[in-house]
């Protein structure tokens, strides 16, 4: 059937969004929305059971994502979505649990939870919108702000070394690590789909324009200018050594899938280890079906 022959049919993504909450709060030109669209697309393509899928966010512009995606969704506190997700996943192991949040939330205030969840290989999908700043609170410097970039609390430019998030994730134990920009939407979708269809701690960083704060303060133009920067300076290097993925101000952006390996998850390890040590005395743990 041709597109024009079925005008009544709504966009399939609408089933995945809380249309009763639209319009959303994001600025015109903000990149978060397109990353959410990619996520909705990935949800559809992955064919996972949506009734068994949960999304959690922390606090921030990106932190609002959980409120717009029509899944069981929890909007937690700043930095704590990952440990809430950890409890949820353990309580009901049949769930697919996604954390969708900002760079400040995941790597700044929540950094400790992030590395520990990776260390345990908790079966979680972490989607981190990196807009190089704390946007929600007005564009303050973040643990991801490139050196010399301007921020409201780094009015003379940032001089702190930023995190290289894929390197941090891999070093901590993540079993799937990818980085893309908001320009690479097809690839973002594919990575998200892969992450949704696998088990283990999966981390996807999406470099995303914050037009209102980061771009304006640094006189980088509008959303289109940022996408142009991504286009000109990004380089796909699948399997690149994550040590080499530092981002300098308006510098090269190495993107791709860097890590994808199988490793038993927290619950696998627990069941296997305790089963071995305790033998028949151990009651294997299966969440709500024990």
């Amino acid at each position: 059937m041709k597109e024009k022959d079925r005008p009544e049919e709504k966009n399939p993504i609408e089933d995945l969004l809380r249309m009763d909450r639209i319009p959303h709060i994001w600025c015109p030109g903000c990149g978060i929305g397109v990353v959410v669209t990619s996520f909705a697309e990935a949800l559809r393509k992955s064919e996972i059971d949506l009734e068994k899928t949960a999304i959690l966010s922390g606090i921030g512009c990106t932190g609002r994502v959980a409120g717009y995606v029509k899944l069981d969704s929890i909007h937690t506190t700043h930095g704590r979505a990952v440990p809430v997700a950890t409890g949820l996943k353990i309580a009901n192991p049949e769930l697919k649990v996604v954390v969708f949040s900002g760079d400040g939330d995941i790597a700044g205030i929540g950094g400790n939870h992030f590395i520990h969840a990776a260390r345990r290989n908790m079966d979680l999908v972490i989607i981190c919108v990196n807009n190089f700043n704390y946007a929600m609170t007005g564009g303050q410097v973040a643990a991801t702000t490139p050196i010399t970039a301007n921020a409201s609390t780094a009015p003379f430019g940032n001089f702190e070394y930023p995190f290289n998030l894929p390197y941090l994730a891999e070093a901590s134990g993540a079993t799937y690590v990818a980085r893309w920009t908001a320009l690479h939407l097809r690839r973002v979708t594919k990575s998200m789909q892969e992450a949704l269809n696998r088990r283990g701690f999966s981390f996807i960083e999406v470099i995303t324009p914050c037009v209102t704060l980061y771009a304006r303060r640094n006189r980088l133009g509008d959303g289109l200018n940022l996408l142009k920067y991504y286009y000109e300076k990004s380089e796909i290097q699948h399997g690149a050594d994550t040590k080499t993925l530092d981002i300098s101000y308006q510098g090269k952006l190495i993107v791709g899938k860097f890590v994808d390996k199988d490793k038993p998850t927290f619950l696998d390890c627990m069941n296997e280890h305790l089963g071995k040590v305790l033998g028949d005395k151990y009651k294997p743990y299966g969440g709500n079906h024990d």
Partner: peptide, 13 residues
């Protein structure tokens, strides 16, 4: 911080 957060997640699980 993580302990109480995990409790909230597990309770809703």
């Amino acid at each position: 911080l993580a302990s109480i957060a995990a409790l909230i997640g597990a309770a809703w699980g």
